[in-house]
Computed example of a mutant assay.
Amino acid sequence: MIDFQNASYLKLKPVDPQDGYKKVAPLLIDGENIFAALKSVRDMVIFTDKRIIAVNVQGMLGSKVDYTSLPYSKVQAFSVETAGTFDLDCELELWFSSLGKVKFEIKGNFDIRTLSKLIGNYIL
């Protein structure tokens, strides 16, 4: 479960959405499509057309995995920050009703504006 007191996923890097599909395929509902996948060392965040799925690998061997589903219908507000000349990371912050804020810091070449538009389409 995401700790909403310290809900920050830092230094995520974009990966092929197919890698995300392998992690969450049994959880997807009929017709649900993945449009972005981000990965840290062991954890992953999957953006679908219905929700965000946070994959938290636990334990020394990584055999225990926590899946947290965050539906777009619970997002009250969101903010994006694009990468700059010297700060190459972009950020996405989402405020969920009754839960709090989740922050994603994404490194590398990632089109945060397109992700923002897709999220906007699902919550507005």
Score class of each variant (00 low, 15 high):
109 N>E: 12
85 T>F: 11
37 A>T: 13
83 A>W: 03
35 F>M: 09
21 Y>N: 13
86 F>K: 12
82 T>N: 15
82 T>R: 14
21 Y>T: 14
102 V>Y: 04
101 K>D: 05
17 P>E: 12
13 K>E: 09
91 E>I: 04
74 K>T: 00
113 R>M: 14
30 D>H: 13
51 R>H: 02
68 T>L: 01
74 K>W: 04
13 K>S: 10
76 Q>K: 04
37 A>K: 03
114 T>Y: 13
60 M>A: 11
32 E>R: 10
19 D>Y: 12
60 M>D: 05
40 S>L: 05
120 G>S: 15
92 L>I: 14
8 S>T: 06
45 V>P: 01
89 D>T: 08
90 C>D: 09
75 V>M: 07
50 K>P: 03
70 L>Y: 01
21 Y>D: 14
67 Y>L: 07
91 E>S: 13
28 L>A: 08
7 A>M: 11
9 Y>D: 02
104 F>N: 05
56 N>H: 07
12 L>T: 07
29 I>L: 06
90 C>M: 05
39 K>V: 06
67 Y>S: 02
121 N>V: 03
67 Y>T: 00
75 V>S: 01
117 K>W: 14
61 L>R: 11
35 F>S: 10
49 D>V: 06
116 S>G: 15
21 Y>V: 10
13 K>M: 04
91 E>N: 09
117 K>R: 15
33 N>L: 09
80 V>L: 07
61 L>I: 13
92 L>N: 07
113 R>D: 14
23 K>T: 11
17 P>N: 13
42 R>L: 09
27 L>V: 02
10 L>A: 10
109 N>L: 12
55 V>H: 01
3 D>T: 05
48 T>D: 14
20 G>V: 11
18 Q>L: 15
33 N>V: 09
115 L>Q: 00
50 K>A: 10
95 W>E: 02
15 V>P: 11
100 G>S: 07
112 I>F: 11
79 S>W: 11
